[in-house]
Amino acid sequence: MQGSDKGNLAGLNGEHLRVGIVRARFNDSVTAGLREACVAELTALGVPPDHIRSVDVPGALEVPVALQAMAASGDYDALVALGCIIRGETYHFELVANESGAGVTRVSLDSRLPIANAILTVENPMQAEARIEEKGRDAARVAVEMALLLKELK
C-alpha cells in the first residue's frame, strides 16, 4: 500500500471478521516476525484473537494449497499468505517466487476470497529483516479492508 492510502484506514473495523494466516516456515525468523506483526495489527483493527487462525507449512510453494483448504472451509472472511524467498545463485528463486505468487492469486480468484500476499521476495536477509514489521502490518490491513469491501459489494 502506498503511504498516502494509510490515512484512509482509520475506520477499519475487523470485529466481526475471521482471518486465516498461512506462514511458510522457511526463513523462520523472518516469517515468525511477519506473523507476529500481522496478528498484532489484526487485533489492533478489532479482529478477536479467537477469530484468527494461523497454520504453518514448510515453504512458500506449499502456501497456496493450505490457503485453498482454508478458503474451501468457508470459515474465513480473508486470508493472509506469509513467507520469505531470498535470492540465491540459481533459478530456484524465480521459480518459487513466481509459482507461489501465481498460486496465491489463483486461490483468491477461484474462491472469491481476499488474500493479502505478504510473501517477501528479497535479494538478501538484510532486506527481509527491514520489511518484517511493515509488511506484516500491511498484510493485516489489506485483509481487513478487502474483507469489508467484499461484504459491502455482496
Rank of each mutant, 00 (worst) to 15 (best):
V107M: 03
S108P: 13
V57P: 15
V63A: 12
G33W: 13
E36A: 14
P125R: 04
N124K: 14
I52T: 01
V19H: 08
N27I: 09
R35Q: 15
S108F: 00
G103V: 09
V39Q: 12
H51P: 03
S73T: 07
D28M: 08
V57R: 11
V122W: 05
I52M: 11
A69I: 11
M126R: 00
I119H: 03
A37I: 06
C84S: 13
T121L: 00
A102Y: 01
F93T: 03
T31I: 06
T43K: 12
L67A: 14
P48R: 10
S29T: 12
R18H: 14
A24E: 11
P48Y: 14
N8I: 02
G7C: 00
R87A: 12
A116R: 02
N8A: 13
E36F: 04
V107I: 05
G11I: 03
S73R: 13
T121P: 03
A72L: 14
S29P: 00
E62N: 12
A116N: 07
R106G: 04
S100V: 05
G7L: 06
D28I: 06
L42V: 10
L9P: 02
A24S: 14
T43N: 09
N117F: 01
N124A: 07
I21W: 13
P114K: 11
L42P: 01
P48E: 09
Y76N: 08
V63N: 05
E15G: 11
S111M: 01
R35Y: 06
N124E: 05
N27H: 13
D56P: 08
Y76L: 08
G103D: 12
N13Q: 08
R87T: 00
L45E: 01
H16S: 12
L67W: 02
P125N: 04
L34Q: 07
P64M: 10
R53M: 15
E15K: 15
I115N: 01
G14L: 03
P64D: 11
V30T: 13
G46L: 05
A32G: 03
A102M: 06
I86L: 08
I52C: 08
A78W: 15
A40Y: 08
F26N: 10
L67E: 02
S108C: 04
G33T: 11
D110R: 00
V55M: 12
A10K: 15
V107K: 02
A10T: 11
V19L: 04
S100A: 15
A40V: 01
Y91I: 06
P114D: 04
V22M: 09
G88I: 01
H16G: 09
A102H: 06
P125W: 09
N13I: 10
D75I: 01
N27T: 11
D28T: 11
S73V: 06
Y91L: 07
D110H: 00
R112H: 12
T90I: 05
A116H: 05
G83F: 14
I21N: 07
E89W: 00
R53V: 15
N124I: 07
G59H: 06
L109S: 01
L82V: 08
V65W: 12
V107Y: 03
V55A: 13
I52G: 03
A69S: 13
G11L: 07
V65P: 09
V80K: 07
G88F: 02
S54P: 11
G46V: 04
E15T: 14
H51F: 04
V22R: 07
S29Q: 12
P48M: 12
I115K: 00
G46Q: 06
L12P: 06
G88S: 08
V80L: 09
G101Y: 11
N27E: 06
